[in-house]
């Protein structure tokens, strides 16, 4: 399958008041890529995601998805996009199935199809027994699974994931990783944003590191490692973001904890 350009950011900048959050991002993404989108807190990762999802307005530059400028093309491109938000804010008095079917229908699925798919997918996670229970009674991990299924149920071509593995157990993490890999093999594009470097390192076939509103590194993990002569993505991350005093900070932290008189124990 020939890789197509599905997503293209050109000279993307964004200001919140006087603060410039994105300082000119150029990025082309092709089908079949799993982009590990990483960067320190406040680097502008979420902002980029929100712009691409059409949640944020007032940016400069162009954002093209499926070859169309989203500022001009209207909302129809969203039909082919799936999204797992970072915070699991959901209408939690809906049942798992109701929520998934509702979302599926928002993307234009027929309710019967959405419901069948929802139940079958839940079954894959052994969650069929709670498919008609309200989301408010779900644990964090279960909610996360529901969100992941919900983002995929309408068979999107581009999937934006923001910390998707939050709260999942090791087995589920493995399932999701393989699911993402196979989706990519079948030509889907995955935009994966996370702080957990080990996972990003293993899962992505391309890593984009955002620092202070600019792309600081872009390439496969091997290329990045080659360049910096360091062993892990974590180390690469630390080096590029210029953070090398973690030991110093940790020492001060422990000093404060162990300082002072122990309080009188009750």
């Amino acid at each position: 399958m020939e890789a197509q350009k599905v997503l293209s950011l050109k000279a993307l900048t964004m200001n919140f008041g006087v603060k410039q959050v994105l300082k000119g991002i150029d990025l082309d993404v092709y089908s079949g890529q799993i982009i590990g989108y990483i960067g320190p807190n406040g680097a502008g990762k979420s902002t980029t995601l929100k712009i691409m999802l059409g949640l944020l307005d007032g940016y400069r530059g162009t954002v093209e998805i499926f070859g169309q400028d989203i500022a001009k093309s209207g909302h129809d491109y969203k039909r082919r996009i799936g999204y797992v938000p970072e915070n699991a804010d959901i209408y939690d008095n809906l049942t798992a199935t109701e929520f998934m079917v509702f979302s599926g229908e928002l993307y234009g699925l027929a309710p019967q199809v959405a419901e069948r798919k929802a139940r079958e997918l839940l079954n894959q996670f052994d969650m069929l027994s709670v498919s008609d229970a309200r989301l408010s009674s779900f644990s964090k991990g279960m909610r996360q699974k529901v969100l992941i299924i919900t983002s995929l149920i309408h068979d999107p071509d581009v999937i934006f994931l923001d910390e998707p593995l939050n709260g999942l157990d090791a087995n589920s993490v493995m399932i999701i990783k393989d699911v993402l890999e196979q989706l990519a093999q079948r030509g889907k594009t995955i935009f994966y944003s996370s702080h957990i470097m080990d996972v990003v390192e293993k899962i992505s076939n391309r890593i984009v590191l955002l620092v202070d509103g600019k792309i600081a590194a872009d390439g496969t993990f091997e290329e990045l490692r080659e360049e910096s002569k360091l062993g892990s993505l974590e180390a690469v991350f630390n080096e590029i973001t210029g953070f090398n005093e973690h030991q110093e900070t940790a020492r001060r932290f422990v000093d404060i904890i162990m300082d002072g008189e122990t309080y009188e124990r009750v």
């Binding site: 949640l55 939690d92 928002l106």
Partner: peptide
């Protein structure tokens, strides 16, 4: 109003006509 008002993100990311 809703206590889960933040859940309304899903309306924004979906292709509502």
């Amino acid at each position: 109003y809703s206590p889960n008002y933040k859940g309304s993100w899903m309306f924004l990311v979906s292709p509502l006509q």
